[in-house]
Amino acid sequence: MKTQEELTEIVRDHFSDMGEAATLYVQVYESSLESLVGGVIFEDGRHYTFVYENEDLVYE
């Protein structure tokens, strides 16, 4: 099982292909040891929320 830090790095790496991230945040109260819930805000103003669970990243 991966730590939240490892899950955060996986998510950060995925979003790095989409541009320069200004902020990546984790909603600790919705996350667990198995999943990471949060969002990313890019330098150009785009904002996505995400759920990373079971090696699957879903974002909108």
Rank of each mutant, 00 (worst) to 15 (best):
K2G: 03
G19E: 04
I10C: 12
R46E: 01
V28E: 08
V58G: 04
D44N: 05
G38R: 02
Y25K: 03
M18P: 03
E6Y: 08
I41K: 04
Y52N: 00
L24T: 01
S31E: 10
E30L: 13
D17Y: 14
T49L: 11
Y48V: 03
L33W: 07
F42T: 02
L24G: 01
S35N: 05
S31H: 07
Y48E: 00
R46C: 09
Q27W: 14
H14D: 03
D17E: 12
S35A: 08
D56N: 15
K2V: 06
A22D: 05
S32W: 09
S31F: 11
D44V: 08
E43S: 13
D44F: 13
T23R: 09
E5K: 09
V40D: 01
S16H: 08
Y52V: 04
Y59P: 02
R12P: 02
R46F: 06
N54L: 08
V26F: 07
E9D: 08
G38V: 11
R46G: 02
V58P: 02
E30T: 10
A22R: 11
E55P: 04
K2D: 03
E43K: 13
H47R: 06
F15G: 02
M18E: 04
V37F: 07
E53K: 13
V37P: 00
E60T: 12
V37R: 13
V28S: 12
V11C: 12
I41A: 02
Y29R: 00
E9S: 10
E55Y: 10
V51Y: 07
V40G: 00
E34W: 09
G19Y: 07
E30I: 14
M18I: 08
G45L: 05
G39S: 11
S31N: 06
K2M: 08
E5T: 07
G39Q: 10
Y59N: 02
V26K: 00
L24V: 12
A21I: 15
E53Q: 13
Y48C: 08
G39W: 15
S32C: 12
E60V: 13
V58T: 11
A22M: 14
H47M: 07
S32T: 09
V58H: 10
Y48K: 00
V28Q: 09
L36M: 07
S32M: 08
Q4R: 11
F50K: 00
E20H: 12
Q27P: 01
I10Q: 04
L33E: 07
E5V: 07
V26M: 03
T23Q: 09
S32L: 09
I41Y: 09
E6L: 07
F50A: 00
L24A: 02
G39A: 11
H47N: 03
S31R: 08
E5Y: 08
H47S: 06
D56P: 02
L24S: 01
I10Y: 06
E30Q: 09
L7K: 03
E20K: 13
T23E: 09
E53I: 13
V58M: 08
F15C: 11
E53M: 14
E5H: 07
R46V: 03
D17I: 14
Y59K: 01
E34M: 10
E9C: 14
M1A: 10
Q27R: 08
L7P: 02
L7V: 04
R46S: 06
